[in-house]
Each structure stands twice: as structure tokens, then as C-alpha cells.
Design a protein around this nucleic acid. Structure first.
Length: 467
DNA sequence: TGAAATGTTGGGGCG
DNA sequence: ACGCCCCAACATTTC
């Protein structure tokens, strides 16, 4: 192949609405697809266990989608800059395309790679793909990044409408580019005209848990991959959306979209969601608003890159967090707090890799306020156990609960898990599903008194009050 | 995307 | 019939 186009897949494990892949097709040269598993570059946070599981299966699904189009997904492991440079040398690629990401370390890595490639005369390009509104295009009247959700989302809705999704390239289109691996040359060197491009074996990355294999609940709950993502998208839009507003707060009802892990790994793009919604339908604005919170999280991550590690309100630097003990932490993590709704949520998380949105707030509030533990402790656990763990949303939402974020819940807002259970799980269906022993003698006593620990949190928050 | 305390109101029981 | 009290229901304030 003369000067193939290298398409670098990252958090965009899809073939439809993939601007980098789409542009590669338009460029008209053979396409080389690659995924780089990078846990070693500076500032890169290693994936948690649940996201590693998802990544394994989503990569498998992506490879199949590409294969159906005569493309091979090449897998490489290592620091992205070195790996891309090596791939460039091995393929003599004339162009390298990818879709943008928004964390600081990722942006620095990508900028370095782009500069390096351009210096070698390569057409290195990044595309707008994974957020509806580029964070650097939105600012307040004062020229500052938005710090409050409502005006942010108002500005988004007033901005030019998000573009229509791009189609997935067809097998015929890709085949016409030639030089590729439509005969499976990656597995049978000598087939086709291209040189064999070495690929790691996915199994060697050991993304799946062993000893023990704790992923049974994930397998029972999820089918990762673009095809399954579209199936859920269709069923949610046709059946779920009308009742979304009414039912989304009831954890016993399957009323939330459950699309978050699809967005996390880019099996679906936000553009596809945006244009799947019948905007005049009841529930549409409410659902899109949730998509707006994801946008806001990425906006904040871009403009305030330390959102995952530092309190956005600096007064919280002096907050008197309690010292975590293993016993206390394990009771929360394993759903043995003695508070049924909290335990149900934590067990749902452990079993399925997600937790219902409302219960996330309750369980997080319990950790940060009733147990008075630093939100970063909870953030780390969610990072490890959520299949939708996302550097933007996870950080923003924990800071929201803790009150340390810029547009956060006021410090004095403390969820009462018993009241929340009465309101949103009145017949106990959800609690009973995950904590069937609640109310029996084997169920533990509450690890803290809800009233006393609430008061302790309010007292502690005096430190940051008024700042 | 809260909860609890405090304040207000209005209907009904009852002397 | 009337006023008083109780208290649920709702509203407002405070944390």
C-alpha cells in the first residue's frame, strides 16, 4: 500500500458515526485500524476492573465489525507516542486520524503525537466525535468556562444544532480502497499485497478477571459492542422515553436508558443519541438534559483537569474527613452497612457494574456525609467497579455529592436513605432484589445512626460554610 | 436531583 | 351557633 491511513481507535469503539474512520474512507487509501492499550504514559489512569472487562468484549465486537468490512483491528500495547511512531514506521502511513479526547494527559499525548507526525509530513488529524459541543467553543458572557449547569445547558441548546451522525462505511466502499486485509491477511501473511502487521493477542492483555472470575454478573447483565448498543438505543427510544421522566427515579423499574457504558467506550456517540430522540416527545427534554450533564462533565474536565483529584472549591482542602478504616470501608463497598437501600445499591454495583442513578446519589451521600469519608475514596471504588466509569462524569458527580464541586449540591443536603426508600422503593422491590435478608436477624445493624451521623456531617461542614 | 424544623391554615370534634 | 382546641396538610425556613 502506498500511503495508508492509520485510524487510531480510543474511546470510540464503533464504526458508525466515527469521523476519523469516515475521513479515512474519504481519503481513498487503504486503512489500517489500531487500538493502543496504554497504561504507562505519564498521567494515564489505569482502567478499573469493570471497565477492563467491558473493553475486552467491546474490542472483540469492534474487531468483528471491522472484519465484516474487510478491515483488521491491530492491537498494540505500550506508551501511545512510541506505539504510534512505530506503527507509522511499519506502515508508512501518509495520514493518521483519531477522534478527540478531553483529559489533560490524553490531550498532551495526542498533541505531542500530532506534532511529531506533522514534522514528518504526515497528515495527522483529530476529529470532533465524542461530545456534542467542543469544550473550547463554549464560554460565558465573561469569557469564562461555564461553572453552573443550567446556563451551560441553555448555551448548548442555543448553539448550532449537533451534526447528523455519519454512516458506517460499507464493506464495498472499504473494499474499493484496496490493499487491505479483506482476505484476512493479518491471520494469513502472504494473502493480499500488504506486509503483515503484527498484532497483540487480546487475551494477553488479561483484561478479564481470573482467580476469581467475578464477572458472572456482568455477563448476565450486559452484551458489550456496537450492535447490542444500537438494539438498546432503539428499544429505549421507542418504549422507554415516554415514561422516562415519571419512572427514572424508581430503581425497581428499568426506566433509565442504561446507555452510559455505551457512551463510555463510544459504542454509541452522543450525536446518535441526540438524533434518535424525537425532540417533541414527552421525556425528550428530560433525557437530553441527562446527556447534557455528561457534556457538562467533559466541559469541566477540559477546563479544570484536576477535577478527578482536587476539590474544586478550595475551602474543602481543610475539610475534616474521617480516617477510613478497612472495616468501615469494606462494609460500604460490600453492601453491609445495615442501611438497606445503600446496601442494595452497592450490591447492584458489584453484581452488574452499574447502580441506578438515584441510588448512586444515596450511596455516595452516605459515604461522604454519614461516614464522613473523602469523596475520592468513593470515586476510586466506583472507578474500579462501574462499567460506565468515566473520568469526567465520575469525578464531577462525586464532587457534586460532596459539595466540593463548582455547581454542587449544597453542603447541608444529606440524603436520608430510609426516606429515599419510602419515596422511591415504597414496596421494597429493589431492596428485596439485592438485600433479601433485610429485616431478618442475619441482617446487620446500621453501622451508624442516621440522625447522629447527619448532625456530625452538618457540624463538620461548618469548616467550609460561607466560602 | 434533600431533610427537618418551624410556621400557617382550615376542617372537624366538642363543650 | 359559637369558640376553642387539635392536628393533618401544606408552606416556609433553616441546616
Amino acid at each position: 500500500m502506498a500511503s495508508p491511513t492509520l485510524v487510531w481507535f480510543r474511546d470510540d469503539l464503533r464504526v458508525a458515526d466515527h469521523p476519523a474512520l469516515h475521513a479515512a474512507v474519504l481519503r481513498g487509501e487503504p486503512i489500517v485500524c489500531v487500538y493502543v492499550f496504554d497504561e504507562v504514559s505519564d498521567g494515564i489512569r489505569p482502567l478499573g476492573g469493570a471497565t477492563r472487562w467491558w473493553l475486552h468484549h467491546s474490542l472483540t465486537a469492534l474487531a468483528a465489525e471491522l472484519d465484516a468490512r474487510g478491515l483488521t483491528l491491530t492491537l498494540r500495547r505500550g506508551p501511545a507516542a512510541a506505539v504510534i511512531a512505530e506503527l507509522h514506521a511499519q506502515t508508512n502511513a501518509g495520514a493518521v486520524y483519531w477522534n478527540r479526547r478531553y483529559g489533560l494527559a490524553e490531550r498532551e499525548i495526542d498533541a505531542g503525537i500530532k506534532a511529531e507526525l506533522k514534522a514528518r509530513g504526515v497528515d495527522a488529524r483529530s476529529f470532533h466525535a465524542n461530545v456534542l459541543f467542543e469544550p473550547f467553543t463554549l464560554q460565558t458572557g465573561q469569557g469564562q468556562p461555564y461553572r453552573v449547569f443550567t446556563p451551560f445547558w441553555r448555551a448548548c441548546l442555543a448553539a448550532p444544532a449537533p451534526r447528523k451522525p455519519l454512516p458506517a462505511p460499507s464493506a464495498e466502499t472499504v473494499h474499493a480502497l484496496g490493499g487491505g486485509s479483506s482476505d484476512g491477511s493479518a491471520n494469513s501473511p502472504g494473502g493480499g499485497s500488504s506486509a503483515h502487521l503484527a498484532s497483540d493477542h487480546l487475551d494477553d492483555w488479561r483484561l478479564l478477571p481470573t482467580h476469581p472470575d467475578w464477572a458472572g454478573g456482568l455477563r448476565d447483565t450486559w452484551v458489550p459492542g456496537e450492535k447490542a448498543a444500537h438494539a438498546r438505543l432503539r428499544s429505549f427510544m421507542s418504549q422507554g422515553l415516554p415514561d422516562y421522566l415519571a419512572d427514572r427515579d424508581v430503581p425497581a423499574i428499568d426506566a433509565t436508558s442504561r446507555l452510559s457504558p455505551r457512551l463510555r467506550f463510544g459504542e454509541l456517540s452522543p450525536f446518535q443519541l441526540w438524533h434518535s430522540v424525537a425532540h417533541s416527545a414527552p421525556g425528550a427534554a428530560g433525557f437530553l438534559r441527562e446527556l447534557g450533564w455528561r457534556e457538562f462533565a467533559y466541559h469541566l474536565l477540559y477546563h479544570f483537569p484536576t477535577i478527578g483529584t482536587e476539590n474544586m472549591r478550595s475551602a474543602f482542602h481543610a475539610f475534616p474527613w474521617a480516617q477510613p478504616t478497612d472495616e468501615v470501608l469494606h462494609r460500604w463497598q460490600q453492601g453491609r452497612t445495615g442501611i438497606p437501600l445503600v446496601d442494595a445499591g452497592m450490591r447492584e454495583l458489584w453484581q452488574t457494574g452499574v447502580m441506578h442513578n438515584r441510588i448512586r446519589m444515596v450511596a455516595a451521600s452516605f459515604l461522604v456525609k454519614n461516614l464522613l469519608l473523602d469523596w475520592r475514596i468513593g470515586e476510586a471504588w466506583f472507578w474500579d467497579t462501574l462499567v460506565d466509569a468515566d473520568p469526567a462524569s465520575n469525578s464531577m458527580n462525586w464532587q457534586w455529592v460532596a459539595g466540593s464541586g463548582v455547581d454542587a449540591a449544597p453542603y447541608f443536603r444529606v440524603f436520608n436513605p430510609e426516606l429515599q426508600a419510602k419515596k422511591f422503593d415504597p414496596d421494597g422491590t429493589y431492596i428485596n432484589e439485592y438485600v433479601p435478608e433485610a429485616g431478618t436477624p442475619v441482617y446487620p445493624e446500621p453501622m451508624v445512626d442516621l440522625g447522629e451521623s447527619r448532625q456530625r456531617a452538618l457540624d463538620a461542614y461548618e469548616v467550609v460554610r460561607g466560602s
